[in-house]
């Protein structure tokens, strides 16, 4: 546990250092890699700041649609970890796969029709996370953005309400932007 936290911390630290000091041009590939890791870690952490309306199964399941690298990263992070005493399982999905049994779904940037996935996520009470600029407009609850070379996220409270999930105010306090009702 402690060892894993160190690993995670080291990853985050190296990511931050890379983000802070590396030139954008020289190390684009490495930066791409780092970004995927950070996003995977964030996905894992989101689970700790979310309350689900439906009763939770003994194991939390995170679905990753159209982003195999993230799924792989997350699977690595999830090994031996748990949230609120529940172990985490990672499922790599393709477009059109059922979202049943999931608590969180990540929709990668490569997905052709994310709105569909997001809609079904809303219906299924699954917390949805996207990484496209129009993610929130498409119906996502949390959307990753790159702000000043940092991975940040924005939150849509109406989507969260529709998805029947409650986001912790502590999560909101570190969100880059929070969309409230009426949008």
């Amino acid at each position: 546990m402690r060892q894993t936290s160190h690993i995670l911390a080291r990853i985050a630290a190296s990511l931050l250092l890379a983000l802070a000091f590396c030139c954008a041009a020289g190390a684009a590939g490495q930066q791409q890699n780092l970004e995927r890791s950070v996003k995977a870690a964030f996905l894992y952490k989101f689970l700790g700041y979310v309350e689900f309306a439906a009763e939770l199964p003994p194991q939390l399941t995170v679905g990753v649609v159209g982003a195999a690298d993230i799924a792989a990263e997350l699977s690595q992070i999830a090994v031996g970890r748990s949230v609120n005493g529940r172990p985490i399982a990672v499922k790599a999905l393709r477009e059109g796969d059922s979202l049943a049994g999931l608590q969180l779904v990540f929709v990668g940037a490569d997905v052709q029709r994310p709105a569909q996935v997001l809609r079904s996520a809303q219906q299924g009470g699954v917390l949805s996370v996207t990484e496209i600029d129009s993610g929130l407009q498409q119906g996502s609850v949390i959307n990753f953005r790159l702000i000043e070379d940092r991975v940040r996220f924005e939150v849509s409270l109406p989507s969260a309400e529709k998805s029947n999930v409650k986001l912790s105010s502590r999560l909101l306090s570190v969100a880059w932007q929070v969309q409230k009702g009426g949008q």
Binding site: A12, L16, V38, F42, K45, Y49, R150, V151, R152, F153, S168, R170, L171, S173, V174
Partner: peptide
Amino acid sequence: SAPAVSFND
């Protein structure tokens, strides 16, 4: 500050 640290803010 736990979230801030967690989410690198």
